[in-house]
Amino acid sequence: MKAIIYEKYGSPNVLTVRDIKKPIPKDNEVLIKVRAAEVTKADCEMRSFHFPVKWFWLPLRLILGMSKPKNQVLGGYFSGQIESFGKEVSKFNIGDNVFGVSNLRLGAHAEFICLPASYTIVTKPTNLSFEEAAALPLGGLNALHFLRKANIQKGESILINGAGGSIGIFGVQIAKAMGAKVTVVDTGIKEKMLRSIGADNFFDYTKEDVTESGQTFDVIFNIVATSSYSAWVNMLKPNGRYLIANPRLSDMLKSVMTSKFTDKKATFIFAGEKEEELLTLKKMIEEGKIKSIVDKTYSYEQAADAHRRVESEQRLGAVIVKPQLNNKMA
Rank of each mutant, 00 (worst) to 15 (best):
G76V: 01
V73E: 05
G100D: 10
K91Y: 02
I63R: 15
K87Q: 03
D96A: 11
S90C: 02
K68D: 01
V89S: 05
S67F: 14
K87I: 01
V89H: 05
F99L: 10
P69W: 06
N93M: 08
Q81L: 04
Q72C: 05
M66E: 04
E83A: 13
G65N: 13
E88F: 00
Q72R: 14
F78I: 03
L106P: 01
S102E: 07
R105D: 11
K68G: 00
S102H: 09
Q81Y: 00
N71V: 11
N103M: 13
K68A: 12
F99V: 06
G95H: 13
F85E: 05
G65V: 13
K91L: 04
K68E: 11
K68W: 11
N97I: 02
M66P: 00
F78A: 01
L60A: 15
F99T: 06
R61E: 11
L106S: 06
G86I: 00
E88I: 00
K91E: 09
L64F: 15
N93C: 08
I63C: 10
N93P: 01
N103G: 15
P69K: 06
N93E: 15
G80I: 02
V73P: 02
L74M: 13
D96S: 10
N103I: 07
M66S: 01
L62S: 08
S84M: 01
S67M: 14
L64G: 13
F92E: 10
Q81A: 07
Q81S: 09
N93Q: 13
Y77L: 05
S102C: 08
G75S: 03
Y77N: 11
E88P: 00
K70L: 12
G100W: 03
V89Q: 04
R105V: 05
V98R: 07
L106M: 15
S102D: 09
V98C: 08
G80R: 00
G80L: 04
F92C: 12
L104F: 15
V73N: 07
G100T: 09
L60G: 08
N93I: 01
S79G: 02
E88N: 09
N103A: 15
K70A: 04
L62R: 10
G76C: 09
S102I: 03
Q72M: 11
Y77E: 13
